[in-house]
Computed example of a mutant assay.
Amino acid sequence: MTVVAVVAEPPREGLVLQELAETTPLSAAEAADLYAAAYKDVLRAVDASGGDLLVNYRSDVDIPDEHQGEQSAEDELRALAREAVDDIDEARFEVQVGTSRSARAGNTITHLLESEEVKSAAAVPPTTPLMARTHVDGAAMKLRNNPVVLGPSLGGEVYYAGFTDTIDFQGAYEPPAVETLATRAVDAGHDVEYTELLPTVDTADGLTTLVTMLRSRVTAGRIVPEFTTKLIDDLGLRVEDDGDPTLVRD
């Protein structure tokens, strides 16, 4: 089984998805709500897959004073997880180690592969609500024959990075992350395979794409991520396109 580490922060106003509050109709509080909804959908997808769920959370001591909450980061993320998965006791929660995205993901993957001797491990952000069980399981299948599997997103980002062997993770997520990770993998002598491209909600472009895809799926009667879809509907988000797709609110 692949251990899938969801590298997450507590969804607090101003701490997460701040770019959305500056570039979309969402407020900082609504952006935090979106992060929480996407986090729950991602956890549900991993929990439903054949992989093992690990929530890799940001330590309270690493969170700026202005973003400290009434609950600890772990307690806050556990409470949200209980709304998404059937048995929270089957999920692992471990604190992140590292001061950058590359370091946090790299330390987690390296520890799992070398110290725990798992066969494969993956790092995913909690911001890709369209990532379903089939994507997680499909990537795990590809990892049987490829040491590195990447899930590309818009703007050269990645929503999935899976490994059966380590690479040099220092600065491995420097943009464009999908290209940097592939270069590090090839430098380490590894073959690279890819999964389907999916949007994340980290940027206005990603959220715009997600909103159109979710509305299309609802219209077509297809499966959608429950928590994110409901929130987007509650917020009245939709896309207008007069030559330039733009997020608006009803």
Rank of each mutant, 00 (worst) to 15 (best):
A84R: 05
A84G: 00
A84K: 06
D86P: 01
D89T: 14
E90I: 11
A91Y: 07
A91R: 03
R92F: 09
F93G: 04
F93E: 05
E94L: 10
V95N: 09
Q96S: 02
S100P: 03
S102G: 12
A103R: 13
A103D: 12
A103G: 12
A105L: 10
N107M: 08
N107E: 13
T108S: 13
T110I: 08
H111G: 10
L112P: 03
L113M: 11
E114C: 11
E116K: 09
A121W: 09
A122D: 00
V124W: 12
P125Y: 07
P125M: 09
P126N: 05
T128C: 13
T128V: 15
T128F: 08
P129C: 09
L130E: 12
M131W: 07
R133M: 11
T134Q: 15
D137Q: 08
G138A: 02
A139S: 15
A139M: 14
A140Y: 07
M141V: 15
K142L: 15
K142F: 12
R144P: 13
R144H: 15
R144C: 15
V148T: 13
V148G: 00
V148D: 00
V148M: 07
V149P: 12
V149R: 14
V149Y: 13
L150T: 07
P152I: 07
S153P: 05
G156R: 00
G156Q: 08
E157Q: 14
A161N: 06
F163G: 10
T164N: 10
D165R: 12
D165S: 08
T166H: 06
I167F: 01
D168Y: 11
Q170W: 11
A172W: 05
A172S: 09
Y173P: 06
E174T: 10
P175E: 12
P175D: 12
E179F: 08
T180M: 08
T180Y: 11
T180A: 02
L181R: 10
A182N: 14
T183S: 14
A185M: 08
D187A: 15
D187S: 12
D187M: 13
H190A: 03
V192R: 09
E193G: 03
Y194T: 09
Y194A: 06
L198S: 05
L198E: 00
T200A: 04
D202K: 11
D202S: 00
D202H: 10
D205H: 03
L207G: 04
L207E: 00
T209W: 04
V211C: 08
V211I: 01
T212G: 03
M213H: 11
M213L: 14
S216F: 00
S216P: 01
R217I: 04
T219L: 13
A220M: 02
G221H: 02
R222M: 11
V224G: 03
V224P: 00
E226F: 08
E226Y: 11
F227Q: 11
T228N: 01
T229K: 08
